[in-house]
Structure formats: structure tokens, C-alpha cells
Amino acid sequence: MDYIVNKENEIYYECGWSSDNAVFLKLGDYRYVITDGRYTLEAKEEAQAEVIEARDLLKKAKELILKHKIKRIVLDPLNWDIDSYRKLSKVANIKEEKYFSHKKRMIKTDQELHIIKKAVKKGAKAFDDFISAIDTGIDEYELSYRFKEFLTKRGRRELSFEPIVAVNENAAKPHAKVSNKKLKKNDLLLLDAGIKYKRYCSDRTRTVHIGKHISMSKYQKFKDKKIQRVYDTVLKAQLKAIESIKIGMEICELDKIARDVIAKEGFGDYFVHSLGHGVGLDIHEWPYVNSKNRIKIQEGMVFTIEPGIYLPGEFGVRIEDMVMITHDGKVEVLSEW
């Protein structure tokens, strides 16, 4: 199969190197990375492909396609602008395959699983270390700033995404932005964050009670009875979904299992997103754990289980862990402690 990719993580997956201005082509037995002069030396040192320097990447790609007499080339139409698509279609027939790279990357190798486990462990440790920096009387901006210091080790590593730090009613927004909301004793604090290790992402959410002793455990005790009821419902949904994971089952079944638990407690209308998503080089990738995805669970998959209940104007609760299906068929829950 001959194909071309143009997104950084997709290029990295193919050859172990990428930049913000490059394309990768696999043409028969040949593998090429085309980039500009700013990156050539680095690419030649790291890329597991023949490196070609060019100012016009697409023009050079077309030349290579013609040189190898390629009749048909695969690309993801979601990743290319119309002009580039048209230019490529003039030198070869285009076979469109949406999410081409995501599908290839859905089943992780043992090496990838090892790296992801380390990413999760390092990210989870940052959550625990952050406890020492949580103070009442400071707002979400300051909390977020401090949290990012621990996550990145003061800039020594990258974030998987911009962390979510939300207090009480702000936590009712699944993708809350930080605000001037100040943290007080007995408040609810939702933290959603991850870090990158060797380019692979981690992702974790904890909803914690701000009391005398703060813990990042999934087992929380709140003063407010309604918060406790909601929290226990979310936790029950997450644990039920995780214990139900089996190789060969359709992934949409997991979404239904968690959703049924929440609906039975009367909060069905407040679980407003899918149960989870794959994690790898991208923070969101295949497989997506939702009500429509009928892909079967396979060895080598990594995805999140993150049910939530969001009560507008009151509070929100989400609990998230990454789950790994090892190549010997075991289900491992990462970052659970």
C-alpha cells in the first residue's frame, strides 16, 4: 500500500521523527521524509527514512510519486486542504481513508504500551505531588499555574493538553476554563490533566474534597450529601464499566454499561459526553468509547474510562483512568491509586 501523511504525530509514528513542516511517503519499499532546510540535519540524524530537502514539499512529493510510477495513493482527506488534494490527484488516483493513521495506531506495540505506562505513572505522581501546593483562598488561575509546575516539572516535559482545574459550579462544565473562583474548605475540586513521555500522552481526572487531608484517591468523602451521592454514582459507573471489559466485546457496550448505572440513579440527562477515548501519540485517538462505536476490544488497545455527572450551577464530578489491554489478554487499569 502506497500512502502519504502530513500530520506531525502521524509522521513520527512512521519514521521516528517529525517537524511542523514535513510529509512522509511510503511508495513501494521506499520511505521518504520531505522537509525544509531548517530541519534537514535533525531529520537525517533521527528519521528512519530517506530525507529529502525541499522548499515546496508537495511539489517534491508529486515528483516522487511520478518517479515510482504510483497509480494509486492512500491519504486521509480530513488532513489535506482542497488545493493540495487536487494537486496530488493529478499525479495519482486518490484512495480516501478517513482516520487512516488513527486506525493504524489503534493497536499499540509492547514498546508503546511500556512507554504509555511510564507516561501515566509520571502524570499520576504529579497529581499526588500537587497536593502540597493546594491552598484555600487562591483562585483557579493560581491553582492551574501551580498544577502545571508539577505536571511539567517546571517546564522539563510537555503537557498532553491544557489542564482543567475547576471548583464547585465551574466543574459542571466538562471542559471548564479557569476563572477567578476561589477555593474554600469543603469545596469540590476537579482536576483533569496529563503529561507526555517520549511523545506519548497520559490522561487522568480526579474530583476531590478539600478537607484537612486531601487525597487523589478515587474514594472520596464529601460533607455535602448530594455531592456524595453523585460522586458515588460516577464511581460505581466507572468501576462497573472497567470490570466489564472483555476482549471481543463491542466497545459501545462499555458506554451503555456506565450510562445505565448513571441513568438508574436519575442523572442520565447529566452525563453529556462519551465514556472515553483512545490515548497514544494524540490525546484523543481511536478507539472512541461511545454509544455508536461497534469496534471490538482487542489486545493492544489503550483507552480512558471517564464517566461524569454535571449539574449546571451546582457542581460536576468526573473520574477518569486509562485502561490498557495487554498482548497477553490482561486488562490493566493505569493511574488508579
Results as ranks from 00 to 15, higher is better:
Y12K: 08
Y12H: 11
Y13K: 09
E14Y: 00
E14Q: 15
G16M: 05
G16K: 10
W17I: 04
W17Y: 15
S18R: 11
S18C: 08
S18N: 11
S19N: 10
S19T: 14
S19P: 05
D20I: 05
N21E: 10
N21R: 14
N21A: 04
N21C: 05
F24D: 08
F24N: 06
K26R: 13
K26M: 06
L27S: 04
L27I: 15
G28E: 10
G28D: 14
G28H: 02
G28Q: 02
D29S: 09
D29C: 01
Y30N: 11
R31K: 15
V33G: 06
V33M: 03
V33D: 07
I34T: 09
I34P: 12
T35W: 07
D36Q: 07
G37I: 03
R38P: 01
R38C: 02
R38Y: 13
Y39R: 11
Y39W: 14
T40P: 01
L41T: 12
L41E: 14
E42S: 15
E42H: 02
A43F: 00
A43L: 02
K44R: 15
E45P: 00
E46V: 00
E46G: 00
Q48R: 14
A49M: 12
A49N: 07
A49Y: 03
A49Q: 09
E50Y: 11
V51L: 06
I52M: 04
I52S: 03
E53Y: 00
E53H: 01
A54M: 07
R55N: 15
R55M: 10
R55W: 09
R55F: 06
D56L: 01
L57V: 08
L58S: 09
L58F: 08
